[in-house]
Amino acid sequence: MKGKKFVYSQKVAPYVFVVPFILSFAIFWIYPLITAFTMSFQDIGAIDSEWIGFKNYTKLLKDKVFLIAVANSAKYMFFTLVLLIPFPMLFAVLMDSNVVKAKGVWKALLYMPALTSVVISGTLFRLMFTEYKTGQMNLITQALGLGTYKWLKNGWSGMLALLILACWRWTGVNMLYFLSGLKAIDTSLYEAADIDGATPVQKFFYVTLPLLKPTTIYVLTISVYAGLAMFLESYMLWAGNSSPNNIGLTIVGYLYKRGIEKNNMGYACAVGVVLLIVALIINFTQLILNGTFKKEED
């Protein structure tokens, strides 16, 4: 039987196994990517579309709202990197040490928020940050005698709300990444460090940190992308895609606004392509600086 021979062939088998991935990757990633790229040079009309060259891109450069969206996304990405790498790492080290009791409980507590839907948590945060006096944040400020504050109408406090939501949600996840990285570190290295008389701080900086580097780079890479691609959090926090003076507008929010709300798919694709390029530039720079592409040293 030819078919049998084919299936059992050692040469063919690996390809058979990767086919599902390749197919779905091609259909759901490569194809949309190419289409988005070509559509970004078109004016997509109701009945027919026409090629308009770089018009979408030149308009994009002059578009003040897009620039606000880029600035917001960049700020958000920067602050999530600052908050969501060191702190989860610290928590992971604590969880791995003998300092903390009832580790399972802590891990579960920190991880739990990631399991809730952003839709629900976003709505809850919106209610907490409402400018009305019954909001959680305003109850706190009133108890401190500061009066109420319009949290979601000012730039800095709006960003604060987004960051608190992000930290609440992702600290546990990033901590687990670091925790798994820590488990992979050979304990004999710490024993050796102990024999050499290293302090816990020295052990952290000279053993843990360098050996955690692959995990850190992974977390950094996905965080850069997640920060730039944030949309749902802002959408839920402001109960829609319109925030006062666009303080909560992100690049993807702008893409949604142009593509879905205004049905201007060509322009939205241009926004998407720019987002992709920015994310690629940042991540490649970061990966090159971290030496990911260098040949592993022997």
């Binding site: 709505t123 829609g240 319109s242």
Partner: peptide, 10 residues
Amino acid sequence: AAEEVAEAAE
């Protein structure tokens, strides 16, 4: 677009 966001979203 904002109305009933919680309800609809849920």
